[in-house]
């Protein structure tokens, strides 16, 4: 199509490509490169030494623990919500779908704040919890709750549109042939949505491990006890221990890269089995 009225002139084309590439390089690629450059600034030995710190190891452990609780719970919720919403008709359905997306429009700080207002020392249930000698705020349960809140919609919003699109015909056929409800779900529905499920879990996990604002509000920043990796990055950074801060950050950046690669692989290879929004 060399017609000048149907496409841009080569000069315009080149300028636009240069603008887009330059903008993305400046705002996306350089920050990512900076993380690794700063982490390795004083050599590999100091970079590796950062991970032998007990506090760093505790932060990594806590981050893994929190994700290991939050992701499966949200997975269970995502499947339940998607089954109810996509396979049945009931009044108030669109309200339910809107409410599921609600945590995405709440500031991370507010997401943490609501749990402080609920369980904090001066919170609604604070005195009650004090009597039980059980801590939620400034302890691991609060971190888990805040993480579940911010990652709440990820899996549900991948499954709902896809399962709605797929309809109920295949499940009805399986039931007619005598399969139980659970068997129908495991052998008919689940294989149909497995890549979307994985896609949702990937995004949910990335956010669960990387969440900063909400977790920061409820954590209390107790080293070795309530410090997740992103919070540990902040502490190290504020102590001017830049190499260690960027070393831990590089681990999180690595996680982000793996997530991106896996995500775009799923979009390219199994795009037709994902929610419509991710099909290229």
């Amino acid at each position: 199509m060399r017609n000048g009225a149907l496409s841009e002139s080569p000069a315009v084309r080149r300028t636009l490509i240069a603008l887009a590439v330059g903008f993305l390089a400046l705002f996306l690629v350089l920050p990512l490169a900076a993380v690794f450059a700063e982490a390795l600034r004083r050599g590999v030995d100091l970079f590796l030494a950062a991970f032998t710190e007990p506090d760093t190891q505790a932060a990594i452990g806590l981050t893994l623990l929190v994700a290991a609780i939050a992701v499966p719970l949200n997975l269970l919720f995502g499947i339940s919500a998607a089954w109810a919403v996509a396979k049945f008709e009931f009044p108030g359905k669109s309200l339910l779908v809107t409410l599921i997306d609600l945590p995405f429009s709440v500031s991370p700080v507010v997401s943490g704040l609501v749990f402080v207002l609920l369980f904090g020392a001066k919170g609604l249930l604070g005195p009650l919890i004090d009597d039980w000698d059980f801590k939620i705020i400034f302890a691991v349960p609060g971190i888990v709750l805040a993480t579940i809140f911010v990652t709440f919609p990820f899996i549900a919003r991948e499954l709902i549109p896809l399962m709605q699109e797929q309809g109920t015909a295949e499940e009805e056929a399986a039931l007619t042939l005598g399969a139980s409800g659970l068997r129908t779900f495991l052998t008919v529905t689940l294989p149909n949505v497995r890549w979307a499920l994985l896609y949702g879990v990937l995004l949910c996990n990335a956010r669960a491990m990387g969440e900063f604002g909400a977790v920061s509000v409820v954590s209390g920043h107790i080293r070795g006890l309530t410090n997740t990796m992103p919070l540990h990055v902040e502490i190290l950074y504020n102590e001017y221990n830049f190499v260690a801060a960027f070393a831990v950050a590089s681990l999180l950046a690595g996680l982000a890269l793996v997530t991106l690669v896996a995500k775009s692989f799923l979009e390219r290879r199994y795009g037709d089995q994902l929610a419509r929004a991710h099909r290229h």
Binding site: A34, E38, G210, F212, P230, F246, L252, K263
Partner: peptide, 25 residues
């Protein structure tokens, strides 16, 4: 394709990591 995938980086990169990287830059 690489550029297309990179657009989602801000979704995937933890905000604290983005923060210290941008501050350093």
């Amino acid at each position: 394709r690489l550029l297309d995938a990179a657009v989602d980086l801000p979704f995937a990169l933890p905000t604290a990591v983005a923060g210290i990287a941008l501050a350093a830059l």
